[in-house]
């Protein structure tokens, strides 16, 4: 019984142990709270500033969601184009890879020139940083379709669209959902990066202003809020993935 309790709660136990250790080190070595605030102090800051934290978190959340939604849309369309035509794939691939290797933070100043500071550059940064994995995964899912299976369908007179709908898309779903989990966390990174340098709202902005007013505990509170949001969204997509593409995770499904 004891064994199963530890096994079951190992992750949460580790988190608690980590926080306890952190608290003890801060107290034991009398570390300046300006450098590293104690977990309890961070918790206090969260309570104290819960209204502004909530508002900024909401701003960051919907900015990320908009950028992410555009990334999903563009990712699917571009991924389908790349995955169903070898020519398009060969033509676009170097450009895409080249584009992806640019640090997206470098785009923020350019976006500010174009759109001014605020929500727009944040949405675009979130989009730019997160669409690439979706494109690559959807394209890979489609391009790795077994040629024999394609022959079976083509010999029946199936059109390209039919092959895509009946086989290509369902088959690439596991790839797609795997990429969503990566993309959603990246989208949060994009939003915060942009907010830090070019916004008057959002968690990124909150942290910048907390930094300039030397409220270290508030900065840590911001970090925790953003990571909780990203983790929650990750879990949402992990759950969706299991629901939609359960067939691809056969290990977890007991044969009945």
């Amino acid at each position: 019984m004891y064994q199963t309790f530890v096994e079951k709660h190992a992750p949460s136990l580790l988190v608690i142990a980590f926080l306890l250790l952190w608290e003890m080190i801060c107290r034991g070595f009398k570390i300046d709270p300006f450098v590293l605030p104690m977990p309890t102090a961070i918790f206090d800051a969260m309570i104290e500033y819960k209204k502004p934290i909530f508002d900024h978190a909401l701003q960051t959340f919907w900015t990320t969601m908009v950028g992410f939604a555009v990334a999903v849309l563009v990712g699917i369309v571009l991924g389908c184009a790349l995955g169903s035509s070898a020519l398009v794939y060969r033509a676009c691939y170097p450009l895409l890879v080249g584009f992806n290797s640019i640090p997206k933070a470098a785009f923020v100043p350019i976006l500010v020139v174009w759109f001014g500071i605020g929500t727009t550059p944040a949405i675009i940064t979130a989009f730019l940083i997160s669409f690439f994995p979706i494109v690559v995964n959807v394209a890979t899912g489609l391009a790795t379709l077994e040629p024999e299976l394609e022959d079976v369908l083509r010999a029946l007179g199936a059109s390209r669209v039919e092959i895509l709908r009946k086989v290509g898309l369902p088959r690439s779903m596991p790839f797609f959902f795997a990429s969503l989990k990566v993309a959603i966390t990246l989208a949060f990174v994009g939003t915060v990066v942009s907010e830090i340098s070019a916004s008057n709202a959002g968690i990124g902005y909150l942290m910048m202003s907390a930094s300039s007013s030397l409220k270290t505990a508030l900065m840590f509170a911001g970090v925790i809020v953003i990571s909780v949001m990203a983790m929650a969204m990750y879990e949402v997509f992990a759950w969706l993935e299991k629901r939609v593409t359960g067939w691809a995770h056969r290990g977890q499904q007991a044969t009945t």
């Binding site: 024999e148 022959d151 079976v152 010999a155 029946l156 007179g157 369902p170 088959r171 593409t245 056969r250």
Partner: peptide, 18 residues
């Protein structure tokens, strides 16, 4: 062009796992 009167089977069963 494709005949539509044929059925095909290959070495790999190529069934759709979903």
């Amino acid at each position: 062009g494709p005949l539509k009167i044929t059925g095909m089977a290959f070495q790999a069963p190529n069934l759709l796992p979903w």
